[in-house]
Design a protein around this nucleic acid. Structure first.
Length: 474
RNA sequence: GGCUGGGUGGUAGAGUGGUCAUGCAGCGGACUGCAACUCCGCGUACGCCGGUUCAAUUCCGGCCCCAGCCUCCA
């Protein structure tokens, strides 16, 4: 099966052909850790985690790196505002980021490089760039000279003249060209800094990714992904550095960019302040609902984030998990990722084809619902069990449906749990259900309904089945 | 000003030159002590104006509107 990906470089969907058939290299731009990440920051992680899962099924090895930027002026400012050290602050939010991403059912990449662990590699590249005449030193800074790169602008499809005409480029007096960007800048004593040939200083934003890619994945990699807002200037500058440092060797073959999350049609961003953090959302919603919502639109389209979208995502997952009820997930669920032939069903191939077609997740989700319908309709137990296994495996390809269905239905929001006295615990619920069962046996339906209404007032929904009464926390 | 995307039914969101997306919500029916779950059935859409065509939501042209990038942002 061929995999097709939309490459920002060509503006077209292309067949994916890795440099080596045995090993795919992939790098996703991670966050700057000066705060909790918002759900928009999680979109590329979830989307490209889905790509990672797809690639793992088709290639023997996928080397996946997702960086953490832990040196940045925003971090310096936040730490100073909080009166804590830069290291304390960045470590805390890096940990929060990892746990947030895990809560969204993202697999952990092989490499999670931190900028501050790779300063040496950055200094090396900067030195090379100076030697080759692509960078110059000025007033303690080292700048990349964009006019030495004839291809500058190839990713974002713009030329230098346009950018200068835009007149929004910061024009520092020491720049040869207004579009030149900083590779290294001086640090005063109160700021984090490292010794370098150009004095004590710290790296500019763009150089870290290039250095870490070179260090962990190689000079030329297959896939580099991130949010649309990184196309310019971040990735454009990376290409300039990466190719100029290596004799014009290609830096990245496939550039992938996800669209924005919006709120009321407006881009969610830290600077606008219209964001919801993953940390906060997880107090009210299961992580899987957030993941489903993020996958419900194609990754390159804008996706409007709202409570209604989350409510719909949850209802959709209720349906899918409802079809899985009574099915015990296999103890080694992740074998599905490496053994795609373990289960056979035409819809599994359909699902795989959708995912291989530039991550058509909305269509893939539709396949999940088709499978759920088939499972619900099947009357005999063996075929139902088989369909449930297929559905679970299909869901797992997208990082969904990996939980025990009963746990899904009994999930209680941390926010509700903390508000004591509000939520009934599981034992109290089971006890009331037992009382209701007795009442029903005695045909005391008034009492039975009374208990059901009482539970409903607490957000607990009951379902009477042949095997007994199930309940769901609404 | 330059450059990108996009406008689909109540809603979210795919897709296609002439037959079905799918979910949620809604309506009718079956099931149920009554419900819930589930199943069966139902609905209507493609920004505006032209053009090409036997046929356009889908192709072409124009227009309107929206979002984004050009500055830190996934």
């Amino acid at each position: 099966m061929n995999i097709y990906l939309h490459n920002t470089l060509s503006g077209q969907k292309e067949r994916f052909v890795p440099i080596s058939p045995d090993r795919v290299t992939m790098y996703v731009c991670g966050p700057t850790v000066y705060n909790y990440v918002h759900i928009g920051n999680a979109r590329p992680v979830v989307v490209f985690d889905t790509l990672y899962r797809l690639l793992k099924r088709h290639y023997p090895e996928v080397r996946y790196a997702r960086n953490i930027t832990d040196v940045d002026d925003k971090i310096n400012k936040a730490a100073s505002d909080n009166r804590e050290t830069i290291c304390e602050l960045s470590s805390r939010y890096a940990d929060a980021y990892r746990s947030d991403m895990q809560a969204l059912f993202n697999l952990t990449p092989q490499f999670e490089p931190r900028a501050t662990d790779n300063i040496g590699a950055m200094i090396e590249i900067i030195t090379t760039l100076i030697e080759k005449g692509h960078a110059y030193e000025a007033e303690g800074h080292v700048l990349f000279n964009v006019s030495t790169d004839p291809h500058y602008g190839c990713l974002s499809k713009r030329n230098l003249d346009d950018m200068i005409a835009g007149a929004r480029v910061e024009v520092a007096p020491y720049k040869k060209n207004p579009a030149d960007f900083v590779l290294w800048k001086p640090s005063s004593d109160d700021l984090p800094g490292w010794d370098s040939p150009w004095g004590r200083g710290r790296p500019g934003w763009h150089i870290e990714c290039t250095a870490m890619i070179n260090a962990h994945l190689g000079k030329t990699i297959d896939i580099h992904a991130g949010g649309l807002d990184l196309v310019f200037p971040h990735h454009e500058n990376e290409i300039a550095q990466g190719t100029c440092a290596h004799q014009d060797e290609r830096y990245v073959n496939y550039w992938l960019h996800n669209g924005y999350l919006t709120i009321d049609g407006e881009k969610m961003s830290k600077s606008l302040g219209n964001f919801a953090t993953v940390h906060e959302l997880l107090q009210h919603w299961p992580g899987e609902v957030l993941r489903y919502a993020l996958l419900s639109a194609h990754y390159r389209s804008p996706l409007d984030w709202s409570d209604d979208a989350l409510t719909q995502a949850r209802a959709s997952l209720d349906r899918l998990y409802g079809a899985l009820r009574g099915h015990t997930p296999s103890s080694c669920a992740d074998t599905h990722a490496t053994a795609p032939d373990a289960l056979q069903h035409p819809l599994l191939d359909t699902l795989e084809q959708h995912l291989a077609d530039d991550l058509a997740t909305p269509q893939a989700l539709a396949v999940l619902h088709q499978l759920a319908g088939e499972a619900n309709r099947s009357s005999d137990t063996p075929s139902r069990t088989q369909l449930q296994a297929v559905l679970a495996s299909a869901g797992e390809r997208m990082g969904l449906l990996t939980q025990d269905p009963e746990s899904w239905f009994k999930w209680q929001a941390p926010a509700a749990r903390d508000a004591t006295g509000n939520g009934l615990d599981d034992a109290a619920i089971e006890d009331l259900i037992q009382q209701r069962r007795d009442a029903r046996k005695a045909k005391n339906f008034a009492r039975s309904d009374e208990i059901r209404d009482l539970l409903k007032a607490q957000g607990i929904e009951l379902e009477d089945t042949r095997e007994g009464t199930r309940w769901t926390r609404g």
